[in-house]
Design a protein around this nucleic acid. Sequence first.
DNA 1: CGAGCTTACTCCATAATCAAACAAAGAAAC
DNA 2: GTTTCTTTGTTTGATTATGGAGTAAGCTCG
Lengths: 390, 390
Amino acid sequence: MASRVPPSFTRFSAQNLAILGPLRAGLADSKADLAKITGLSPSTVTARVDELIGLGHVIEVGDGVSRGGRRPRRLALRHDGGIVGCIDLGIDRTSIGLVDLSGQLVARIDIELDVAAGPHPVLQRVWAEFETMLAESTAYSQLLLRGLSVGVPGPVSAETGRVIAPSRMPGWNGIDVAQILGALAGVPVLVNNDANLMALGEYAASDRREPDQVFVKAGSGIGCGIIARGELFTGSRGAAGDISHVSVPGAPPVACSCGRTGCLDALASGNALVRELQAAGREVATVEDMIALARDADPVATRLLREAGSMTGGVLATIVNFFNPDRLVLGGVLSQSEVFVTGVRAMLYAECLPLATDRLTIATATRPDDCGLLGAGTVFLDRMFSLQGI
Amino acid sequence: MASRVPPSFTRFSAQNLAILGPLRAGLADSKADLAKITGLSPSTVTARVDELIGLGHVIEVGDGVSRGGRRPRRLALRHDGGIVGCIDLGIDRTSIGLVDLSGQLVARIDIELDVAAGPHPVLQRVWAEFETMLAESTAYSQLLLRGLSVGVPGPVSAETGRVIAPSRMPGWNGIDVAQILGALAGVPVLVNNDANLMALGEYAASDRREPDQVFVKAGSGIGCGIIARGELFTGSRGAAGDISHVSVPGAPPVACSCGRTGCLDALASGNALVRELQAAGREVATVEDMIALARDADPVATRLLREAGSMTGGVLATIVNFFNPDRLVLGGVLSQSEVFVTGVRAMLYAECLPLATDRLTIATATRPDDCGLLGAGTVFLDRMFSLQGI
DNA sequence: CGAGCTTACTCCATAATCAAACAAAGAAAC
DNA sequence: GTTTCTTTGTTTGATTATGGAGTAAGCTCG
């Protein structure tokens, strides 16, 4: 791979971004296309593209196929202009990956890591593992590390970037992950909630770019990310999408860690189901075990998953009526269970107005394992290729 | 008032809009301010403002006060450049108003009108009443009627502008209000859901311009409008915010017009409460009667209003957790009842995470009677002063 | 195989925009 | 009452973007 690294990004002008945007999204790959899409004049496109080529951000990649006239000279982003480190911090498992400037995931590892060990030990371990992975990825280790993008399993303040009131991350309240990791890595760090990143990753990875989507991460916990008008919606506080502690209609008053009873997280999360299954005498340790059991037609596991689907669907029904998304995506481990997904579907169609569901697609994640890392990469690249810059 | 009408709007250039936007919003009233806010150079601002003055859209209105140097020459939009007719169609009462180009409501009348009489009779009556009102408003009848903006008490398709599946407007399904009224009036007509318009009107009228707001119209029916990132959010279908037929957690299975049971509209709407109160032997005809009864400490009316508040609050709790608005505004007739509002508040604070409510303001509408008409005006003017144009 | 058509791209005179110097008008300091 | 500083607004080359004309390079069909 190219060892000559293009100059560091500072900021792009609005017009350069108008060129880079369609190139990045794959909506255009020639000057003519760019002129059509951006509305800029052909001469301006030529001038801007030449500048971007000179700066080393864009390259010509040979000729395209003719559409009845002169064939276009195809343009592309240089994806060797750097690399972004992506980290999806989980409760007991963390994924680490590399995303190139085109948004492709080009390397990943998974490590066992208990988030309860506390911010500093966890983040030091994560950084050490990342450095090892980067050094071993010979194709990419020469490239400039542009920064890190991290997903955490708890709310992240939109203003300060700190973790706030994370019910499942003891010792992390008020922690500034960007500052700690930034000190270790010496590069810019972005931090977001994991479900938000998964929503964005799914949106970027799938063909179905519906502008209004809801992504539900049903794993050991339950989270949710919102795409509104094609952009991540977090609310001014940064906590939008947090449905863990919504009361489930008509459910038993099971005590929740938040101090109330009947919360979705206490009733339908993977952790809650495993506990119930253990109470019923089954030998299960993880959510995956439980799903395997249900696949083997265990009646209790199957019933619990179906009920969890119903309860999740009941909460989502209100949200679908209210928000009217075009697409609802189920991700997380529980989405691997057909019974759970069926439960969600059945409840949604039963509880929603036809008006709200007749255009609604209910799907499972296109790349369930990767969407967290892909979303982390997307957030970073979108910011890098924006007026704001990194 | 000026009888010379400025030339018809066609489209504004992006830069002219950059000038008009801050002037319209009251964020700037001099060339220096405009340069600061828009980021355009002072010379460009001068050129654009001169052009807009020449076109008759902007005027100089004397000198401002010095802030330590030369005093500014104050600029303003010409609000005599036309007038917009606003119509808030209700189930049995319709408001008709005039909004000038600055967004001020300058005239209004209310008429008794049963929407069930059907589209053509209703819209003909509305247009006749509007013409009478306009002719009698001598200060404005000379001005150019730019168009009409209508709110209807049912879902409106975002794509076709037609009324779709309106549960409370028999005979209106699939009706193109814009086409019917446009044929009568000969001017452009915009149609939107009434709760959406009220949300926008409240947003425009209040000082608290929080970017993420939810407006709940609790009247004879229950509707809801969403402001996300400072803009009306309707979803691609146009029906976002429709919470009438959300199931109320733990409520009795009262039959609803939608064919299901336990819907919010069947339990907590003004109509539902009046029916229940009548069943309890009270002599009430309207929602206003019921509120008056509760003010006189009638125990049944008070209990019903409080329960309705709780049920509405229970549904809104899920929405607040999910959407995380900065502001929740209660409008419609029921918001005039302190008991109802208290019920909503109590349930919301009981059911929501502190994270979701610690920044949340729960308020009643600033101008409860006018926000529908104001919102209709806002929608029209925002569209007129956009690249899209009318 | 070439005339005519289509598509892709470039050149150039015109128009728009900008930064910077300048002018106007007032406030504050001495 | 003069000097100096601030703020507002205009004028002036220099820079930048634009749209249309022109060029390049393919297709298609008689």
